[in-house]
Amino acid sequence: MIETNGIHTAIVMPLVSPQKDWRADFPASDLPAANRPYTHVSVSWGEREVFLDTPTWADLSLPTAINAATGGDGLLHVAHYVRPAPSETARILRLRPAEYARLVRRIESQVVPPGTRTIHAGYEGWDVFYDAPGTYHLGNTCNQWTSDTLAAAGIKTGWWTPFAGGVMKWVPMR
């Protein structure tokens, strides 16, 4: 699935599939609510200060936004879900096995190995942040990351998708 909160997008994948077991990269033990029967993982990328200092969009300050737009460090946001359902904000995207394998490889390239990365507390008991490579700026936004990741898997997306709507328009509602 591709999910959005209207401003930010993320890629939701099975926690375990024939192509990938994400439990080694994103262990539930990193979460405060580690003992839930998680079935899916949501992965997104964004700017460190925005992620860590703005638990709600109302908390986003002008200086933080300006700093992010002009170049900030990357961070992965990983949320764990139990049987997520499709909705207006979480759309199913069906991939062929080869496409999904390319998607997995692209996301793996953004994962700093456990033991060598810093773990940052998430907003809830089921999410967490990890250090990630890359520099956030107006040409490389969180939504552009989602779009570029999908494009690397062979999924048709827009050329420049800095906003959530630019990503979601390529994912059909079912």
Rank of each mutant, 00 (worst) to 15 (best):
R91A: 12
L95T: 07
R96I: 11
R96Y: 11
R96E: 15
P97M: 08
P97A: 07
A98C: 07
E99H: 05
Y100I: 06
Y100W: 10
A101D: 12
A101V: 14
L103E: 00
L103T: 08
V104Y: 07
R105W: 09
R106G: 02
I107T: 07
I107V: 14
E108W: 04
P114D: 14
G115K: 07
R117T: 11
R117S: 10
T118I: 13
T118Y: 09
I119G: 00
I119M: 00
I119E: 05
H120Y: 14
H120S: 05
H120R: 11
A121C: 00
A121P: 09
G122M: 04
Y123P: 04
Y123E: 02
V128N: 01
F129M: 06
Y130L: 08
D131E: 03
D131V: 02
D131S: 06
A132F: 01
P133Q: 01
P133H: 06
P133S: 07
G134L: 10
G134E: 01
T135R: 15
H137F: 15
H137I: 09
H137N: 15
H137W: 15
L138P: 07
G139F: 14
G139C: 10
N140F: 03
Q144T: 13
W145C: 01
T146F: 01
S147Y: 14
S147T: 11
S147A: 15
D148Q: 08
D148A: 06
D148W: 08
T149A: 09
A152S: 09
A153T: 00
G154F: 13
T157E: 01
W160S: 01
W160K: 06
F163P: 02
A164K: 10
A164S: 12
A164E: 04
G165N: 06
V167T: 06
V167M: 03
M168H: 05
M168L: 05
P172C: 08
